[in-house]
């Protein structure tokens, strides 16, 4: 039973564009929120929810589902847009983002919206939650067919909590735990390598006992194959370093860390949406 649609590569690309358009529209309506990270993660979330993961939008708590934890909670717009387009709730509701009374809180609150596995926003705790979930499946319940996914920001890897979880998952060989790092090289105060250098990131994860894959985070076929390889490694947790462009798809935002935490104006959003539509038509 898996009513969530399975899309092929061209359809996944088109869906990532639709997700980006929703992100821009919801941020412009909200007048606050984060642009760069969510836009850069559109393909990652699209591949997970429209191809890789087993899940049922009509039954968010389906006991056979694969689960997704969002650790970098400020990227909520990309998760909300993905969930809405998957059928968890009406797409029109996206425009209530961050408003008083909305289920779409500024940072994801699990108890507010079906389809969310965790409450996040404060960085650094999602990998531990995912590791706890994966541990319970693998070592307590013997449910070896279910996979646990978690997305993290790269700046987020500054947090010690991440590396505590990395050590834990390595020790317990959580082979069905798959982390995806949004490696966009920006955080709030600037470029990650200026604020707090992270490279050599591959070597860091490997030394903690992880299987490491590297992929262009906008290449949907590449992402699918990386995730499939990660699934095939059963003896170790896997992490995919997904190289992304912050603000991807919006030329005036791309690569500029100042778009980390601000929304487009309605005019900028209209211009950006038109650009994405044009690119898709070309």
């Amino acid at each position: 039973m898996n009513p969530a649609p399975l899309l092929d590569v061209p359809e996944l690309k088109a869906q990532a564009d639709r997700t980006r358009i929703s992100i821009l529209e919801m941020l412009a309506a909200a007048k606050s929120g984060h642009s760069a990270g969510p836009l850069g993660m559109a393909e990652i979330l699209t591949v997970l929810y429209f191809n890789v993961m087993k899940h049922d939008p009509a039954d968010p708590d389906w006991s056979e589902r694969d689960v997704f934890f969002l650790s970098n909670g400020h990227t909520a717009p990309v998760l909300y847009a993905t969930l809405a387009h998957s059928g968890y709730f009406p797409v029109e509701e996206l425009l209530t983002l961050r408003q008083y009374g909305s289920r779409l809180q500024g940072h994801p609150e699990r108890t507010a919206l079906p389809g969310l596995e965790n409450t996040s926003g404060p960085l650094g705790s999602g990998l531990s939650q995912a590791a706890g979930y994966a541990y319970a499946l693998q070592h307590i319940d013997d449910e070896l067919h279910r996979f646990t996914y978690v997305a993290m920001g790269d700046g987020e890897l500054n947090e010690g909590n991440i590396w505590e979880a990395a050590m834990f998952a390595g020790k317990y060989k959580l082979g069905r735990l798959i982390g995806i790092v949004d490696r966009n090289y920006i955080q709030i105060d600037g470029l990650t390598e200026d604020v707090m250098p992270l490279d050599d990131l591959r070597a860091k994860w490997e030394s903690f006992g992880w299987h490491v894959l590297e992929v262009d985070g906008h290449d949907v076929a590449g992402l699918m194959s990386a995730i499939n390889q990660a699934k095939a490694v059963a003896q170790k947790p896997s992490v995919i370093l997904a190289y992304t462009v912050p603000g991807k798809g919006v030329p005036f935002m791309e690569y500029d860390y100042r778009w980390h935490g601000k929304p487009p104006t309605p005019e900028q959003a209209t211009q950006a949406v038109a650009g994405i539509r044009q690119g898709a038509g070309a």
Binding site: G33, R98, Q105, G106, H107, E109, T119, S120, G121, P122
Partner: peptide, 8 residues
Amino acid sequence: VGPDGATH
């Protein structure tokens, strides 16, 4: 803090 919500 406003629109950032409860976590913040």
